[in-house]
Simulated scan of single mutants.
Amino acid sequence: MADTAFTPRVFSGIKPSGGLTLGNYLGAIKRFVDMQGGDFETIYCVVDMHAVTVWQDPADLRVATREVAAGYLAAGVDPEKSVLFNQSRVTGHAELGWLFSCVARVGWMNRMTQFKDKAGKNAEAVSLGLYAYPALMAADILLYHATHVPVGEDQKQHVELTRDIAAKFNHDYKVDFFPQTNPVIEGPAMRVMNLRDGTKKMSKSGESDMERINMLDDADAIAKKFKKARTDPAPLPETVEGLADRPEARNLVNIYAALADITNEAVIEEYAGAGWGRFKPALAELAVENLAPISSEMKRLMDDPAEIDRIMARGAERAREISDPILAKAYDIMGFVR
């Protein structure tokens, strides 16, 4: 079976680890919406099993899982056009994750930079799940024979590992069963940075709420944060190259371009030489126009958790329709008696 025989299919997910930010929206959810109804089947997941690689309060995990689902729906992920569910409802993720743990090599896991970043000097005390979760991530993707995964640069290594696992499985069992998944990395704001420090990624765990735009922020909060975002004294440059050593300026231009669906070059063409007194209010207005309706709809959905759960349960049924035959075939290839 050649790669061209696989159904073009996108899989991606977001971990419910406490609060969606503008980074989640521009780096992931907005792209998920844009890919619907096109050349791909689209499968989007709340990867709640990844969240528990570090301890989660059970009540908080339930809220965070529904918040991510609400974010998907409010931003325009259509559960009729896409499959939308939370990972733990489809046990095939964990099952294939174990099979892949037996295919992947320890040396491959040791090269995963995200584990080193998250574990730091405390590597001996973190959970085994935090170390091994890239095998589960590969299973998330390959359980659906996904051919494409929209990711940020910081996740590209995990897609490369997924390709390695697929290749080793196919080689070891002399089959051409799992596809070579391709990362899709595009867009001007793939890595949205901190509004107070343009050298750091925007994070829900940052010290100050002014560092980030939360997807549940109302219009006033969104406008205030952009107007107070850190900048340097110089006006916007005449060319994009002039942003190279100006991280805060570059970040705000990236965000404007992503929200407006235009290039950075087009932003600079419109605002070349402009001061921040002109640019930041324009950015704030654009952000409110795009984000405030999503925030309002998220809040409405969060007030009806039963509706969110119903949508995810139906999505899980559809996910199993795709994944069950793939998982069964993987078991068969490996020689399990079932």
Results as ranks from 00 to 15, higher is better:
38 G>N: 03
252 L>E: 06
185 I>A: 07
45 C>Y: 00
244 A>N: 13
104 A>T: 14
151 V>C: 00
172 D>C: 12
59 A>T: 09
103 V>F: 06
120 G>N: 11
215 M>D: 07
250 R>L: 12
325 P>I: 06
177 F>V: 12
262 I>L: 08
303 D>R: 06
56 Q>L: 11
319 A>S: 03
65 T>N: 02
244 A>V: 13
282 A>D: 15
128 L>M: 15
318 R>K: 15
33 V>S: 08
104 A>V: 15
338 R>Q: 12
187 G>E: 01
305 P>I: 05
170 N>L: 12
85 F>A: 00
3 D>T: 09
299 K>V: 07
328 A>V: 05
39 D>R: 15
284 A>T: 06
57 D>W: 07
207 E>W: 04
103 V>K: 03
313 A>N: 07
206 G>R: 08
85 F>K: 01
156 K>D: 06
152 G>M: 01
27 G>T: 01
33 V>N: 04
274 A>N: 07
203 S>Y: 11
232 D>L: 09
248 E>F: 02
62 R>D: 11
141 I>M: 07
238 E>W: 05
206 G>H: 08
87 Q>E: 00
260 A>H: 06
127 S>H: 11
25 Y>G: 08
144 Y>Q: 03
146 A>R: 11
315 G>S: 00
292 A>R: 02
66 R>G: 01
249 A>H: 07
257 A>T: 05
319 A>R: 04
279 F>H: 10
14 I>H: 02
22 L>K: 07
122 N>M: 14
265 E>A: 15
7 T>M: 13
148 H>C: 04
159 V>L: 02
22 L>Q: 03
136 L>C: 01
273 G>M: 05
165 I>W: 08
327 L>F: 12
118 K>Y: 09
34 D>F: 11
4 T>N: 12
143 L>W: 08
109 M>R: 09
12 S>G: 04
82 S>I: 10
72 Y>H: 10
123 A>E: 14
295 S>D: 09
118 K>V: 08
39 D>S: 14
217 D>Q: 07
260 A>V: 01
308 I>A: 00
200 K>C: 01
304 D>T: 14
247 P>M: 06
112 M>N: 12
255 I>H: 05
43 I>P: 02
24 N>P: 00
307 E>L: 13
165 I>H: 04
303 D>H: 04
241 E>W: 09
167 A>G: 09
67 E>D: 12
79 P>H: 10
43 I>R: 07
130 L>K: 10
